[in-house]
Amino acid sequence: MSDASALRKVMAPTGVLRATINVGNPVLAGLDVEHQPFGVSVDLATLIAHRLEVELELQVVASAGEAVDVVSREEADMGFFALDPRRGESIEFTAPYVFIEGCYLVREDSPITAQEEVDRLGQRIVVGKGSAYDLYLSRTIEQAELVRAPTSPKVVAFFREHQLDIAAGVKQQLEVGIEEFGGMRLLPGHFMTIQQAMGVPKGRSPEAAAFLSAFIEEVKAQGEVARLLEKHGIKGASVAPSA
């Protein structure tokens, strides 16, 4: 068996590369007018399938939590995720390829003006269930209450509907909510840097993770990740440095 055949066997054991695409993160993917997925993660998955010389099957999900579950159960061969220790229990990650800011949003008339004023008794922060910032804030928030919206894209609407104090999420997603609804503002700065990486099920052969790790370092170094961010008009995200 050739090295290429062996690699295809561990990366795409069904003969097709099954990749999860989370359209709940607008930095990485979305749906076009015909409800077809597009974006940075779609283009990277396409490049990987081409490299392996296999067909690509995109498994579109609405949230990061769903993507993690699908790959953890080995119902998909790889996915695109934010790094998190809890997720690392079932997924083998590459180094990050993109950095995204996690920010807070409040109403325009809110007395909250700074990051330091968020974690206080009596205040409620809405997060997308199972998102990277949900996992992070679950570990770090000590006094405020976390309230979970079904998915990240629904955070701003959930925040408004339930009259909550603070919404947490990907900066670009919160900005879309401000543009759509008005009457809200971002707090200055960010509470975390979300490190976006790729991953395979933990039980896969080490060669699978090694292949993805080498691939992502190559496309970062060649400027391909930067080109894809520009192609899709992504602002406020940066290419991660070489591992």
Rank of each mutant, 00 (worst) to 15 (best):
D3I: 10
A4K: 15
A6C: 01
M11E: 05
A12N: 03
A12L: 05
A19P: 08
T20I: 04
T20H: 04
N22V: 05
V23W: 13
N25F: 14
L28H: 14
G30W: 10
G30I: 11
G30T: 13
L31H: 05
V33W: 15
P37T: 06
D43C: 02
L47A: 12
A49F: 03
R51L: 10
R51Y: 10
L52Y: 12
V54T: 14
E55R: 07
E57C: 05
E57M: 08
E57R: 13
Q59W: 08
A62K: 00
S63A: 15
E66L: 03
A67W: 00
V68Y: 07
D69T: 02
V70G: 06
V71A: 06
S72T: 11
E75H: 13
A76S: 14
M78P: 01
F80W: 05
R86N: 14
R87W: 03
G88C: 05
E89D: 14
S90L: 10
S90P: 02
I91K: 03
E92P: 04
E92L: 06
E101A: 11
G102T: 10
Q115F: 12
E117N: 05
E117R: 03
V118I: 13
R120Y: 00
G122C: 02
G122L: 02
R124W: 01
V127L: 10
V127A: 03
V127K: 00
G128T: 06
S131D: 12
L135P: 09
T140E: 13
T140R: 06
L146P: 04
P150E: 03
S152P: 05
V155F: 00
V156D: 04
H162K: 09
L164K: 00
D165C: 02
D165V: 02
A167R: 03
V170S: 00
V170T: 09
K171Q: 13
Q172R: 14
E175C: 06
V176N: 12
I178Q: 13
E179G: 15
F181R: 10
G183R: 04
L186T: 05
L187W: 03
L187V: 07
M192T: 14
Q195T: 12
Q196F: 02
G199I: 01
G199V: 02
V200K: 03
P201I: 06
G203D: 07
P206D: 01
A208I: 00
S213R: 14
S213T: 11
S213G: 15
F215Q: 14
F215G: 08
I216S: 08
E217R: 10
V225N: 08
V225W: 05
V225D: 11
R227D: 15
R227K: 15
E230G: 14
K231R: 15
I234L: 12
I234C: 09
A237N: 12
A237D: 12
A240Q: 13
P241M: 13
P241K: 14
